[in-house]
Computed example of a mutant assay.
Amino acid sequence: MNIKNVTVAGSGVLGYQIAFQTAFHGFKVTVYDINDEVLEKAKSKFDTLANAYKRDLNANDEQLNNTFQNLQYNSNLAEAVKNADLVIEAIPENLASKFSFYKQLANLAPEKTLFATNSSTLLPSMFAQATGRPKKFCALHFANTIWINNTAEIMGHSETSKETFDTIVDFAKAIGMVTLPLHKEQPGYILNSLLVPFLSAATNLLINEVSDIETIDKTWMIATGAPIGPFAILDIVGITTAYNINQMAAQKTNDPLKIKTVEYLKQHFIDQNKLGVATGEGFYKYPNPAYKDKDFLK
Rank of each mutant, 00 (worst) to 15 (best):
Thr48Ser: 13
Tyr284Cys: 06
Cys138Lys: 01
Val31Arg: 03
Ala249Leu: 12
Ala78Ser: 15
Ile270Lys: 06
Lys135Ile: 10
Glu185His: 01
Thr179Glu: 11
Leu234Asp: 06
Thr67Glu: 08
Asn149Ala: 14
Phe115Ile: 05
Gln251Ser: 11
Ala152Phe: 01
Lys298Ala: 13
Ile168Glu: 02
Thr215Lys: 15
Tyr286Ala: 01
Leu180Lys: 11
Pro92Glu: 03
Leu95Ala: 01
Lys136Gly: 06
Gly10Val: 00
Ala52Ile: 12
Ala50Glu: 11
Ile207Lys: 08
Asp271Gly: 10
Arg55Gly: 08
Thr151Gly: 07
Tyr291Lys: 04
Ala172Phe: 09
Gln272Gly: 07
Met1Thr: 12
Asp47Pro: 06
Pro256Thr: 11
Asn150Gln: 12
Leu122Lys: 03
Ser97Phe: 07
Ser200Lys: 13
Phe101His: 02
Thr151Ser: 09
Val81Asp: 00
Leu64Pro: 04
Asn83Pro: 02
Ala232Asp: 02
Lys260Arg: 13
Ala90Ile: 02
Thr67Ser: 02
Ala9Lys: 02
Phe27Met: 10
Val13Trp: 02
Ser100Asn: 14
Ala223Asp: 13
Ile190Arg: 08
Asp293Lys: 14
Pro134Cys: 09
Asn144Ile: 08
Leu14Ser: 06
Ala50Pro: 07
Ser161Met: 12
Ile190Thr: 13
Asp56Ser: 15
Asn60Glu: 15
Thr240Lys: 05
His268Lys: 15
Gln21Lys: 10
Asn83Leu: 10
Ala226Cys: 11
Phe127Leu: 01
Ala96Leu: 09
Leu77Thr: 01
Phe101Ser: 01
Leu194Ile: 14
Ile91Arg: 00
Met248Ser: 15
Lys173Leu: 09
Thr240Phe: 02
Ala42Cys: 14
Phe142Arg: 05
Gln104Glu: 15
